[in-house]
Design a protein around this nucleic acid. Sequence first.
RNA 1: UGCUCCGUAGUGUAAUUGGCAACACGUCUGACUCUGGAUCAGAAGAGUUCAGGUUCGAGCCCUGACGGAGCAACCA
Length: 567
Amino acid sequence: MSKEKQEEPVIKGESMSFIEQFIVDDLQNGKNEGKIVTRFPPEPNGYLHIGHAKAVCLSFGMAKKYGGKCNLRFDDTNPEKEDVEYVDSIKEDIKWLGFDWEDREYYASDYFGRLYNFAVDLIKIGLAYVDDQPAEVISEQKGLPSRPGVESEYRKRTIDENLGLFERMNKGEFEEGSRVLRARIDMSSPNMHMRDPIIYRILKTPHHRTGDKWNAYPMYDFAHGQSDYFEGVTHSLCTLEFEVHRPLYDWFIDQLKTGDYRPRQIEFNRLNLNYTVMSKRKLLELVQEGRVSGWDDPRMPTLCGLRRRGYTPESIRKFVDLIGYTKVEAINDVSLLEHAVRDDLNMRAPRVFGVLNPVRVIITNYPEGKTENVEVINNPEDESMGKRTVPFSREVYIEQEDFMETPVPKFFRLAPGMEVRLKGAYIIKCESFRKNEKTGIIEEIYCTYDPETRSGANQSEKKVKGTLHWVSAAHAVEAEVRLYDRLFNHEDPAGQKDHDYREFLNPGSLQVVKGCKVEPSLKSAKHLEKFQFQRLGYFCVDPDTKSDHLVFNRTVQLKDTWTKLNR
RNA sequence: UGCUCCGUAGUGUAAUUGGCAACACGUCUGACUCUGGAUCAGAAGAGUUCAGGUUCGAGCCCUGACGGAGCAACCA
């Protein structure tokens, strides 16, 4: 049996990103024996966010599309920042997104031995040396981007001395910060990264996987390319800020490689979203300072946050696909992300009735105590989702917003003397209402219904402009609904000079509405199950839901031209 | 004032080896509708940062400006 369909390797006429073009060219030229291997290399120091999703989709996506493999590799070279807690969440999030690294779960720390030996080799050929100077001095000597650096006095240490010192660094004989190993390249290079970069430093914090086995740890630049090489990675895809690291990446590969094969680093633009922050540091602060409820707060751009908010993996993949991969540093509009979920959920979310701000409607000519089960379609976009019945009775709740004592022009809803259809049931006419004169709140609305207008078989000729969602008062289930707005009220909260991003936190980003009334079928809804509350938006069941307490998160509103026009 | 990268409608992306700028989202019309959603039809909106050059012809090539980003962590 064939597994999933392999897409055609060469697509004519379809536009592909410059990265895909590179891959296709390499494949056609028979480079690396016509194989493609990519990798997704997170550092386990935080939760994955939607920016990572873009990288995941690229590396796993390209491998899948062209019959290659994508490795999951944890870039765990800094024990001070990393933790297993993050490893597990990262794996969960990648799986949720729909990608599979099979048995290729690797760790940079698995290569510490080989990396160490490579460093020793570099020392032996005079391309690395131990520097005893303090950090400030080394930094000072590096010069400025516009000024060349100066060479360290330790640059001409003998090979034997370097060998001995490096070994002792790793044995733990020296204090943190007292010595580093540096590659001996060019202190006057216009590229700062080539000015004798530090490749090993002493760290005494136990590593989450190797414990206290090592005391000298490789830096990113000394681990990444080499790890790619060890794994046979052909295309090492990363974000634009690593562009200036590429010469160093290649320099190490040059020293390391023995045959024709070499990994190639290609950089693409990172994903930026407006009205949010994306840096791990800031996200961590939001969590630690209690400004959100956790990494999975539905307002967070983390994958676990988006998942809890009700986003589907499909919608995130679609969004990523929509924004593409280029070298332009773009700021993407959240509304495009919202479009992507709406588009996805429109096809798959069953429609239900839920009233957020209920007001009671009494149908005075409907028999007291009577209940009818009306039939409604679960999803007009997908007939196979079938129908369900909803109880209808003399008293129903409708949305407060759907009634106006004195309607404005083009208000197609309920108002004294006006008729509307209760979706799936009858057309009702507002005869009167009761208002609390003190508060101005409408407390009850009195209507009559037309028995001839019941939805279904013998369709009545009568047409009305408005159709409302409703819930039978006697059968309604109480629910709490959490409405979310953007976390920040500034497009680019992190990019404002002289302003801390926290100043732009949107105080109204979470609105909890209690006492909502939803149709009885929702009583059995499961965690994260998604629905469209008709006319309102897409909602999913929050994990805080208990058997006696239903909680929904609003994923996104439906497009609403009415409120837009009347704002 | 060093090096690297980038500069196409409001936003994000396209434009085969140079051949008179396309798509999506958004916006605005209209149709339809038992969701003011969806769907369908249509419209407006850039002459490709600017100035030169090469060419019969340039968003694509060259030069120079201008604008933006990244690089000066014993982070990744």
